[in-house]
């Protein structure tokens, strides 16, 4: 099981701050595609991903128990 966290406008579009998905052995890129299709959000190409609180690239393979955060461009400061 993989937990996916959403922030800022993504949290608003998806309507939840997190979801859990039954998947493992797949890449971040396929996770994004799945979420994008399921929730009809089309701006995920501008969104970074972190796995277990470290930035990770699109080809990173996810394992059971991973916490993935989808991180829109940041605007702190």
């Amino acid at each position: 099981m993989i937990k996916v966290l959403f922030f800022a406008h993504l949290k608003d579009s998806i309507g939840a701050d997190s979801i859990t998905l039954q998947m493992s052995g797949e890449s971040i890129s396929s996770l994004k595609k799945a979420i994008s299709e399921q929730y009809k959000v089309d701006s995920l190409h501008t969104v970074m991903a972190a796995v277990n609180e470290e930035f990770a690239d699109e080809s990173t393979i996810l394992a059971d128990g991973d916490i993935v955060a989808l991180i829109p461009p940041v605007s702190g400061g």
Binding site: A8, H9, D12, I28, S29, K32, S43, H45, T46, V47, M48, A49, A50, F55, A56, D57, E58, P72, P73, V74, S75
Partner: peptide, 17 residues
Amino acid sequence: EWIGNQKETVAYPKGKP
């Protein structure tokens, strides 16, 4: 509005910075 990338001027083709 959430500030950050409304104009999509920043993209992360590799999914991270």
